[in-house]
Amino acid sequence: MSAAATTTLPATPAATAPERRASRAPLWLILPALLLFTGIVLVPLAMTVLLSFHDWGQYKGIEPVLVLKNWHEIATDPYYAEMFGRTLRIALITTVATALLGAPEAYILNRMSGRWRGIFLLLILGPLLISVVARTLGWALLFGGANGLANKLLMSLGLIASPLPFLFTETGVVIALVHVMMPFMVLSVWAALQRLNPQVEHAAMSLGAGPLTILRRIVLPQVMPGVLSGAIIVFSLSASAFATPAIIGGRRLKVAATLAYDEFLNTLNWPLGAAVAVLLLLGLILIVVGANALVERRYAEVSP
């Protein structure tokens, strides 16, 4: 990059000093950011990939050799298949649930009058900025075994006869994750709805379409890219979520992120933890890039 910028300098002697300074300017403006990211993102990531090939023993610690031991262990031990399967399952259910609840809510929000819309947008998007620990703590309080408020409420409504187990279950993790991820989905659908030409609904109406037809044939197809891009965000964040599975799922219900944490800070088997993290990263990159490409190809004519 720096080489490219230097070679584009004007070679003619006629070039004046300010011109030359201008063409050099972007380099000096970008250089700090570039150094920062090379030094503190690219190098550490490369070191982590390398680490995943190192050997480790209870007493010898990390040995800087290149072996496939960790990768072999992940590939063959069914414990990891189960754990990655659980991670994927939780992320998928969370994604579907946020889409099914968040998209209608964004639509309802969009039809509200200005002032209410602003208030509810703040209430629904606001939690995004509130500490995940605080939010998940709220769910832990609501779930809290048989004495949890959620169970008390459901039983007093007569919906269930005996308390449901939420804490330390996948159901509980999914409910709390849906709550944590929901603002991303609402935001994404909301943005798509803002791009919708409001006259289009009137046009469909004037051509004889009823409200359900308008929703199904006119609004939904145009909002779908927003739903899908929201789904991609929610999926990748859910699959790598840490705080919620750690607090609601407890010590037994491991997902990729909590397992990596355990390997690094409890077992101290860094190479194995690095392999889990790298696999999570690679898997997510593949899924996200693939899904993005599909969405873009499918909805080329709708997206601006």
Binding site: Q199, V200, S206, G210, I218, P221, V302
Partner: peptide, 19 residues
């Protein structure tokens, strides 16, 4: 209801269905 009036409307923004 507007959908039952049978009028043809051309909108300022055209309001074509982009999809």
């Amino acid at each position: 209801h507007p959908s039952k009036r049978g009028l043809g409307i051309v909108f300022q923004s055209y309001a074509l269905f982009p999809h």
